[in-house]
């Protein structure tokens, strides 16, 4: 089947319902959108349906929801301190959204929503806009202190401030590209190694070598599960770290 040969084909958007155009932008309900809403549904099931009994002694799913909550609450608390609690819903939503979408991508034949740069960039934009808007609203011009490292001699500030500005501006890029590139590269690598197995099997005597890429595929699959969870954690942690800047602009 030719479809499986192309390692890029898996990232194509398939419109399920096309809704028209705005300029050259096609507006369509794609499988990507379906996966996003499915992820929202799964997260709601896990965090709302599983906790509906509000039992003091939790069931399995409630225990999972509590563990995830405490995990993110710890991360947020460590990065931002006590007043970071107001950002808990944002960081938790981001973490769960990225985690579930990454894990959806690990289901065979499923679509990896986070392999699209615009999605990860959109998520990073939410974070950066929250940091800037909250920081300016809370601290006004003091928020610019984020670019001025404290305890640095005045002459050095001439160098440090531009560096800080560039570093701040590169945050949304690094945040989105990191997640996107990890997921994309992982899926391409999986596809290519899996295709090697097929190619070797149909290549006569070379077929004896086919277990090698098969083993690699299995190992890569395990690695990709790790990456899926790790990138969600990294995204959430960096979000919390950036939000700490909005809360305490002075370094």
């Amino acid at each position: 089947m030719a479809v499986s040969v192309d390692p890029i084909h898996q990232f194509e958007l398939q419109p399920l319902v096309s809704l028209g155009h705005i300029g050259n932008q096609q507006i369509a309900f794609t499988q990507s959108a379906l996966y996003m809403f499915a992820a929202v549904g799964v997260i709601a099931l896990l965090t709302i349906a599983a906790t509906s009994s509000r039992s003091v002694v939790p069931g399995r799913l409630q225990a999972l929801a509590e563990t995830l909550y405490e995990f993110i609450a710890d991360t947020v608390h460590q990065a931002t301190g006590a007043d970071g609690k107001r950002f808990m819903p944002l960081v938790f939503s981001l973490f769960m959204f990225v985690l579930i979408l990454n894990l959806f991508g690990m289901i065979p034949y499923a679509f990896a929503v986070t392999s699209h740069l615009i999605i990860t960039f959109g998520l990073a934009l939410i974070v950066i806009l929250t940091v800037v808007i909250y920081g300016v609203a809370k601290h006004g011009s003091h928020f610019l202190g984020v670019f001025v490292p404290s305890g640095v001699p005045k002459p050095l500030l001439l160098i440090m401030v531009p560096i800080e500005i560039v570093s701040f501006l590169s945050r949304p890029v690094s945040l989105s590209v990191r997640l996107f590139a990890n997921v994309l590269a992982g899926h391409i690598a999986l596809k290519i190694f899996a295709f090697f197995v097929v190619q070797l099997l149909v290549a006569g005597a070379w077929g004896v070598l086919s277990p090698l890429p098969l083993a690699l595929t299995v190992a890569l699959t395990a690695l990709e599960f790790l990456v899926a969870a790790l990138q969600a954690y990294v995204f959430a942690t960096l979000t919390a770290v950036y939000l700490a800047d909005a809360l305490h602009p002075g370094h």
Partner: peptide, 20 residues
């Protein structure tokens, strides 16, 4: 495809944020 994806992302993530 970007605008479409951003719209669905905003809707899905907005819904998720609201629920959470």
């Amino acid at each position: 495809t970007f605008l479409s994806q951003l719209i669905w992302l905003a809707l899905a993530f907005g819904l998720l944020y609201y629920l959470m």
